[in-house]
Nucleic acid binder design. Structure first.
Lengths: 349, 349
DNA sequence: ATAAGTAACGGAATCGATTGCGTAAATTAA
DNA sequence: TTAATTTACGCAATCGATTCCGTTACTTAT
């Protein structure tokens, strides 16, 4: 089949006896074009099926009205919601969203980073891969004044926009909650400690224990590689077989927490009676598992929306590489059955 | 801070005393450039921090090495996996992925469609919104020879590439499975019937009943609007309060199926003893709910990969608008506890 | 009535990479 | 040795939209 010729502003110009400059200005509502002319041109454009060519405009303006997103994996509830929030906000302002996943490999992060740069994105939103230590691949964005927003998994040795939750307080509160439920030997499923989020959750856990005068036992702190279901199952089995098993677990994610609940049940250990469990993220599985999983809820979609807004609002601003602008969002402890040893205390009105 | 000047092929040309043509050809491994020159130019490019400008190349070639994705919502397990598969395949071939979500609104689908078109995407992958009936907004892609791949939720009045699962057979098999487990009054949670996937799942359900001589009872077929948890809960309650309640449910998705299980448990109805349940999709919640949910597994990521490949392989081909090329993928019945009334029969080796 | 101002538009360069066509030099064939 | 290729490049147009400078025809102020 034959391909129809695309309609350009030159075609419109010829058809309407105007210059391409006027067509362009009219389509962009430039003030030096009369209302009447704008109306005529826009109607003709509509009728002739004109569609702007973003590549041409982008080349001329050296930007593409596109936000690049660089994350580890799309098919995780948190990440999917994050992207969803980014996409919604971006689209409202007429921006497109380019996505890429690193699968937690540094190498992929670097090459995806370059691919996004080559597309001349307006800004970049990043959640670091597990492996990433060096930040060199982000420098070219800074050099060009292209804003970078790190979200959730952020670096601490690189200045830029950052959107995070207060992982320390969340970890502290989750642990405190278990303590208030009567737990005295609380284990922690910790994530890779070079990623800020896991490090801070652990710090919160440790400080809560200290504050309540509970001993810190190294063999109750399990360092996970990926916080997967399998890892969680194995760790739980090991913990529950100890001579003096823990009576609570604070897991740095829900997947491992759910595996702990299911493993405990299989081993005949009562949750929360003998083992209280609290997770992190509020994934869908948290409300489905039985007993339902207490957890820390993450405003994922909102984080995405804020990150996108950072980029949209940045336009033309000067980039101060000497400081970071950090947005910290609150979290919420969602108390469900897996941690509820005592009856819920009614809040005063 | 000052913005560094970007390095272009003209800068390389000046620096190395070659013409821009030679630089361009060298970077693209054109055969008329000597190996030695290519090596020299590429090394200089690397050293000077040259990065190609996709906008410029795209404008010249009238394409952007970008695949557009238009779906209803990103934060659904199936969709997230689909995109993940698309992204992986696309990136391996050096393509970027632009995403947009319609939130199941026809209006959004149309405007996102235009936005993607304006970015001169190489191809479009679409899963239709719930509302979409008219297909006019896709015509401009056909006119330009830009391939469209409909995936999962596909139209039947529009010729193009299509990637689907055999929803009819899956619905048939799921229902048959319940029958073989001894169910005689099987309810169906049906989705919106103007979307092919739900229509076919229902057809499969109906035919299985017919084949086994079971009566079709209209009051056992519940038509859902969104197959949400709440809808499922309500429907289940209604069903179980009937004088002659069903002994099995085939739900067109897992969310509603899980809600049925939880609702039944709350009402003291044994699953699968008094009510066997099977869902669709194999979402993560399916293996977490107790009893674990039998379901139909969807090769989501693979569907994404195949869709992307369709577009990558299409390049330059002639578009025959008189036929559809349909790829049908198999599904698998995953038998878990929610449907297992009888002991599992061992397969012959 | 004349200078000054403004409204409405056109010309042409520009963004960066690609590529058809042309050409000089080097190599091979005869 | 000369003609015929082949190798290795350069020139300049091109893609479509934007925008800096004009320019012309009107208004408005004085």
């Amino acid at each position: 089949m034959k391909i129809k010729k695309e309609v350009t502003i030159y075609d419109l110009a010829k058809e309407l006896n105007y210059s391409p400059s006027t067509i362009s200005r009219a389509l962009n509502n430039h003030k030096s074009i009369s209302k009447k002319t704008i109306k005529v041109i826009k109607e003709a454009a509509e009728e002739m099926g004109y569609r702007p060519n973003n590549l041409a405009a982008g080349l001329r303006n050296n930007k593409s009205n596109t936000i690049g997103v660089l994350i580890s994996r799309i098919n995780r509830p948190f990440m999917a919601s994050l992207i969803s929030g980014i996409e919604e906000t971006a689209r409202k302002s007429g921006y497109n969203v380019l996505i890429s996943q690193s699968n937690d490999k540094y190498e992929n992060e670097v090459s995806n980073c370059n691919a996004l740069y080559d597309s001349r994105i307006t800004g970049l939103i990043v959640s670091l891969s597990m492996e990433t230590v060096d930040m060199g691949h982000f420098q070219k964005f800074m050099d060009q004044g292209i804003p970078i927003v790190f979200v959730d998994r952020v670096p601490d040795n690189f200045n830029s926009y950052k959107v995070v939750i207060d992982n320390y307080t969340a970890g502290y509160s989750a642990t405190k909650h278990l303590i208030e439920q009567g737990c005295t030997r609380i284990a922690h499923f910790a994530g890779a400690q070079h990623r800020n989020i896991y490090e801070e959750r652990k710090k919160g856990y440790l400080d809560a224990l200290r504050e309540y005068g509970l001993p810190i036992e190294d063999n109750l702190i399990i360092h996970f590689k990926t916080l997967s279901f399998e890892e969680g199952d194995k760790a739980t089995k090991k913990l529950l077989k100890m001579d003096n098993p823990p009576d609570g677990i604070f897991s740095a994610n829900d997947t491992a927490a759910v595996s702990a609940i299911m493993c405990a049940k299989k081993m005949g250990v009562d949750v929360p009676g003998e083992l209280a469990v609290i997770g992190f993220n509020d994934d869908p599985i948290a409300s489905i598992v039985q007993p339902s999983l207490s957890t820390v809820s993450h405003p994922a979609s909102k984080m995405g929306a804020i990150s996108a807004r950072r980029i949209l609002d940045h336009s033309g601003q000067n980039y101060d590489t000497d400081l970071s602008e950090i947005t910290v969002l609150g979290t919420e402890i969602i108390v469900r059955d897996s941690s509820l040893k005592k009856a819920k205390v009614l809040e005063p009105k």
